[in-house]
Design a protein around this nucleic acid. Structure first.
Lengths: 110, 110
DNA sequence: ACATCAAATTAGCATATACTAATGCATTAG
DNA sequence: CTAATGCATTAGTATATGCTAATTTGATGT
């Protein structure tokens, strides 16, 4: 091990395909319960809870307990370390900026 | 395991801090040999070779053998899967676009 | 030819990780 | 109060991973 920065937690959290899939499902919904995430995930509820814990520690998701359910939502700022890291290599992906360019236009018109 | 896409190889390759450090050193130079990468890395030459192999399989570096040395260089397009993945969540990092905005200006003036 | 050097590969080991099954802990329903 | 529900946590296990030390492979130098 060489460092233990936030980028580390983020990259480790997103390295696992199952966990990345969980994150994507959380992102694609406003809020979603553990039970709903478990359905169709291919793993047990316990595994989902473990993945959510990892994502939470990485700052990628947040929870909102309600009764005996717990709703999870994506945490936008959690991706910041990764965005910053990418930014550092941005000269590399100049050619892939078409979408971003469009996005910037949208932001400008907000 | 749920999938085995290129994003998977890239994320796994960049998940390890030591390997990420190797990549950064490769990026920061035009070309660099295994021996040079080994110096100051804190791990053995064998370990560095292993990390380079992983990075190569992920498409993040390329090699140029010359005599008994092998020069490694960064492979820009290897980051494309990660850039695309980030792009998918771009609505999340709207607020972190200042640098990109500057970069786009530079590109526009090329 | 022989020794040396650079890098890749291998075997072995220790740790980390992803998972399941089982259990624990609140909360709600009857 | 008791049972059931939703989620977290734990123990245990199998596999993956990162590392070292040693060896192999290939190229250069003497």
């Amino acid at each position: 091990m060489i460092q233990a920065a936030p980028i580390d937690a983020v990259m480790r959290a997103l390295a696992d395909p199952t966990r990345r899939a969980v994150f994507q499902r959380v992102v694609s919904t406003d809020e979603i319960t553990v039970a709903d995430l478990t359905h169709g995930s291919g793993v047990t509820q316990g595994a989902i809870s473990q993945h959510l814990k990892t994502l939470k520690l990485a700052g990628l998701v947040a929870e909102r307990p309600e009764g005996r359910k717990v709703y999870y939502r994506a945490e936008p700022e959690g991706l910041a370390p990764l965005a910053d890291w990418m930014n550092h290599y941005s000269v590399f992906w100049k050619d892939r900026f078409s979408n971003l360019r469009e996005l910037l236009k949208e932001i400008d018109h907000d």
